[in-house]
Design a protein around this nucleic acid. Structure first.
Lengths: 125, 125
DNA sequence: CACCTGCTTCGATGAACGTCAACATAGACA
DNA sequence: TGTCTATGTTGACGTTCATCGAAGCAGGTG
């Protein structure tokens, strides 16, 4: 159980930016299902500690980092582990054990999908 | 108290896309303060009902909508009002009363700032 | 004035969340 | 084998949150 397989919303889409879960927020009203799906991602980033952890991983060299490199966010180590698990469950991170350390890695397609969500569509303004 | 004045993080920045609260997530690890600020926005969108309301407003003609147009999201009307207030406090919406109805409107600069946050910077991958 | 409609605020309740201390597990090394 | 270090898991506690019904406020209409 080293790698996550719970990407809940977007297929890997090998080619490019993957099929996002939902259209841009400004295109049309979200259905209940779309909202449920997208809210899960936003909620995962809705905690300051998780945001710092995610940013630390995303900005780390190679797009991955071991827990020891990023666990200096002012909370106890179990709490860090708990938040990393949450990010993993939300499909934003994947993890892999290499020897002593566990490395976390960002899922670029998810970033792209969320960015597309926030695109200002033709209907706005 | 018709218009929000609590845009917590980004100055209106009359010129263009406003100064976003934080750099792209992938540029460098967020500081505690940046994370606190950005997490407030993500948390506001981290609820399915709020996401539907926000999307309904954002996609409505003219970028604004009265409560009566968007309150069909499966929860009671006071709950709708509560969520709209949350979105307003997060700086994502503004409201204005015109006669009988209250109109909510999206804050485009915030959308742009969040989109920029999710940009994939040079450090990633 | 009275009445109705649209929306917000108030108070309460149950669920979800963040946090920690303690324990468990996995690998490295002697 | 034993021990040490690095992580993940469990259980509990206090806080925050989403939701509702009821009451309150504002504006329009008779």
């Amino acid at each position: 159980m080293s790698n996550t397989n719970v990407l809940p919303l977007l297929e890997p889409a090998p080619g490019e930016t993957a099929a996002p879960c939902c259209p841009p927020l400004t295109e049309r009203p979200f259905t209940a299902e779309e909202a449920e799906t997208a809210a899960r991602m936003f909620k995962a980033l809705g905690d300051p500690v998780r945001l710092r952890l995610f940013s630390a991983v995303a900005s780390h060299e190679g797009g991955e980092a071991c827990v020891c490199d990023i666990s200096d966010v002012g909370v106890s180590q179990p709490t860090v582990s708990h938040h990393l698990k949450k990010l993993k469950e939300a499909g934003l991170l994947t993890s892999e054990r290499r020897g002593t350390w566990v490395y976390y890695r960002v899922e670029p397609s998810v970033l792209a999908a969320m960015g597309k969500l926030l695109t200002i569509g033709p209907a706005a303004v």
